[in-house]
Write a protein that binds this DNA or RNA. Structure first.
Lengths: 215, 215, 215, 215
DNA sequence: AATGAATGAGGCTTCATTCAT
DNA sequence: CATGAATGAAGCCTCATTCAT
């Protein structure tokens, strides 16, 4: 899961704690806004210890990107694609799942932070090519999931005038847009619009509405 | 056009130069990645001169946001809404215009930088509420344009199952998503996908294709 | 009164305004705490204009010191020594006069600022020998007044065990101490203590009490 | 001895070195005239290290004030009040002690710098209320010493016409005045005048004269 | 394997001062 | 004369990083 050598389990735990704290903080406040001092504080670890596990702050960013990428697969797409089949159900389930997570986050923290992967990539892509590459790979993998859905939808004859490729790219873009809107508005509802736009595009009449009934 | 006091023409020119250079640099490399030193260098102005016109770096960001907001209206929506009427033509024209701009930029600089307004807002929204507010206002104005289009499309009977409100929100989200994708991929083509998704949603069969025939 | 060339009366008025504003501000907030920008603002004069009348900030300080020195003579010692004779009456009158001024200032501004001459000299003596010299001359002149008083008191046989020189030095020191205390405490009352100590030393039984009756 | 957390001995040594250097420099050249760069140089420490121990320059000033306050008690009043009893002896001893210190300083450095506590307070009282409060507390403690002396003197019947309170306030003012005069004149002798004025006020016929016989 | 202590480079801002009209 | 505009130097502070134990 990482390019570093293996560690004893306690060391691995420390490394994981650092990484997850970094992911947490970078997501909420961006890479540049989080100082190594604060990361050390919040991780309850000495700053020099961080540098035992990660050569520098930049590689922490890269590892965070990888972590985020693997979590979106294992936490969202893997289980949903296992449990559901069919373009509509899968797409609806993906959005329902994400919307639920965001709604919880919003309730607990009063704010939303956009897509952690795109966030890092947008902030650091220019100065850290590795992050750009990594996030490109992650989004390729997500787009591959949407390609499954697109092919399925086209097969079923409900979509016309779209290549599966273009449709999958578009589904990904809509997801990006939803994350941007949730962050700008600090509200989770844009995910419902995005879900419905996506469902519309794959020819579904299904709609997602807020479970709590609010718009 | 700005909340600052007015200046004689030479001062105004300096102020404008600073502001536009800042807009240029912040767009390409983000607010935090651009130091006041570099801004002074690139503007060919002493650092202290910058502080004659802007009380601090943060208010530069705010003025840049305002500038970006006024430019997208005066440079894209105003002329297009004057020249075109009808949902389809207007939406297509907006995307064609933006795609052209991005393609040029891409040809000249070899890279793309996303939406300058959303970029600043995503980077600074948390630490600078003013930027968040300003960009919210800008995107409200853009969404109002999309609402015109949505109402028109619904009136014409080509769209079913969408409220004009929801449709306009969705159109804005798709635009956000397109910008994210162009930046991540460093290619302008995602704008074509976004254009087509948007046209599809307003019930149009029109399609945008790359003028140069690629992709 | 100044080493500068003579000016037309309007220019002289400008120069005077600058100087008095500087004296006002330096007294209240110290030389280093007052920027030339603020001085220009408060004087309603362009900053470059200040530099037409004063070669640099340091010489402004020197001129302020001179102004303060001449004002304490013309505003306090000259009239009092003209009006009163006799050690006791003169000394009492000096303190009564100063206490009244300070009480007024305290009522109007809610704070006190110490001796303007000593203040500048203490702040700048090290880096600006001219200010030290000037303030030394001023305090020599004040001490000369006290020497008059001391000689008078000794002549009258009320003081024993003191040379007139030492007594005059001491009276000046007590005045210094009073100013320090008023500034530290932001209250004018220490002047009453100082008055009484001075009167005691010159063998007087006279006492100064607060006109308002408060301690 | 300070409100800061405790440190291991090496850190404490560094902190102490910084603090004492700051006290040294602030005394000689004032707070505003000493840059953090110079303090780092003179302490042989990196600038960032200073900020490990003191959150900013202002709190350095406050700690310096506290240090000065504790040193005047432990270095002057504590031992003298232990060794001597009786108003006259104590007062004379205090002034003899201070005069000796100042004479040494004057011999070694060719200059005198006034009261370090009052100096900071006069310079910073306005902009840093904490320093004002701290120095007020320090001078209250010193005045309490003088109150002991005043009560003693009044008890012994040598003083008439003074309340112990007023007398103690006056003794403190005379001390302030002595410090001002030593700094303005760059000579220690004013302390002798102040000593004699103070002794006179408490009804003593004792006199301090320069040990070396000059003046 | 981990920590407390230290560092050099660089960030933002402000100052006294001068130029050009 | 007077002003608006501009500047170089310097000030305070913070960051990512490394040293020494």
């Amino acid at each position: 899961m990482s390019s570093s050598p293996t560690y004893t389990s306690k060391a691995a735990a420390t490394r994981t704690r650092i990484l997850e704290t970094a992911a947490f903080l970078f997501w909420r406040r961006s890479y540049h806004a989080v100082a190594m001092d604060e990361l050390a504080d919040k991780t309850q670890v000495n700053k020099a210890t961080i540098y035992r596990y990660f050569p520098d702050k930049a590689s922490l960013a890269l590892e965070v990107a990888k972590l985020n990428g693997s979590q979106v697969q294992s936490g969202v797409f893997d289980p949903i694609f296992e449990q559901y089949s069919g373009a509509e159900d899968r797409l609806a389930a993906v959005y329902r799942c994400m919307h639920t997570k965001l709604a919880t986050l919003h309730r607990e923290e009063g704010d939303l932070f956009g897509c952690p992967i795109a966030g890092l990539a947008l902030e650091l892509g220019r100065e850290m090519p590795g992050v750009r590459t990594e996030s490109a790979a992650i989004f390729d993998a997500i787009q591959a999931r949407f390609l499954d859905i697109a092919l399925d939808a086209i097969d079923s004859g409900k979509v016309t005038g779209w290549s599966a490729e273009a449709l999958s790219r578009t589904l990904l873009q809509i997801l990006h847009g939803a994350f941007v809107s949730t962050r700008l508005a600090a509200r989770p509802e844009p995910f419902l619009d995005a879900a419905n736009a996506s469902l519309t595009l794959i020819g579904s009449k299904q709609r997602l509405t807020s479970p709590s009934g609010e718009e």
